[in-house]
Design a protein around this nucleic acid. Structure first.
Lengths: 146, 146
DNA sequence: CGATATGCTCAGGTTACCTGAGTGATTATT
DNA sequence: AATAATCACTCAGGTAACCTGAGCATATCG
């Protein structure tokens, strides 16, 4: 008879649960934004979530999204092709360009905001006001405990 | 003066927070498992998290991890090369092979378990027993509300 | 003014998935 | 029992979302 190792297993895996919950929400967000007619993917939220109304430099976008300028540039390229963004020269620095939202980009951003607002409402229904506040507080604590 | 769009913004973005928290925990897990001397990546958890002690078929591993057999096969290849797994013929079906953990694989699995146990303990310190239980319950609810 | 730093782009690589097209082995059908 | 259909797996090739390294133009600093 074969020796079977005796494992000390964790009771639960919170990180795994976190992943499942995130995947579920991301599906809903992507579905919502796509339903508004925008051909954008989850990765593009790194742009929409970090861009300022007055425009933002590539390096700053990359920094905020914690990725390389090269990777961010690809995402921006996509969205320029889709008509959501344009690159204009930065008047304060000849080397730099400002990434700015087009009119379509602003519409898409508002649609994304609306989707998120809807999800927050759903979550409040699911968890209750107190439950949702507690969840956010817990997530904050985990994220910030470096 | 330039027209500045008036946005209706969400008060908070729970999905974003979820992403931040997950990223933080994943850094800790990877660091922990690597510190035990194993050259494994996050994707390999799809194998370690779904394999049975007595061995598991590729198709079943793929199903449990919700990915294609081809993708799972690549992960298995990696871990076979690393000495963590072997493929043996399935005695009950000539078409199939069983993926089984080697001794080293069992050690790695236990090390991963220990890392997760440590994280759960940290989380309990951070959030309190009740807080952690509530967090898991909320995450379950979000993940399962298809 | 020259050295160094900064912002960006071009080229190419990696990881983690995917689809599609096989090859054998097994099971079902006639 | 022969043939068809199915199943487990592999091979080839593609894509998305990142990465590193190198190079070029513009700024800044001593």
């Amino acid at each position: 008879m074969s020796t079977r190792p005796q494992f000390r297993e964790p009771e639960e895996n919170t990180a795994y649960l976190l992943g499942q919950a995130l995947a579920a929400l991301q599906r809903v967000i992507t579905r919502g934004v796509n339903a508004s007619g925008h051909d954008v993917r989850a990765a593009h939220s790194a742009v929409f979530g970090n861009i300022d109304h007055e425009g933002t430099r590539l390096t700053q976008l990359a920094e905020r999204a914690r990725m390389t300028p090269q990777a961010m540039s690809e995402l921006v390229d996509d969205l320029v092709t889709g008509g959501y963004l344009t690159r204009i020269p930065d008047p304060t620095d000849g080397r730099a360009k400002l990434i700015v939202l087009t009119d379509l980009g602003n519409v898409a951003l508002q649609d994304a905001f609306d989707t998120i607002i809807g999800i927050e409402a759903e979550l409040e229904t699911l968890l209750g006001r107190t439950g949702l506040l507690r969840l956010r507080k817990a997530l904050h604590a985990i994220a910030e405990r470096e």
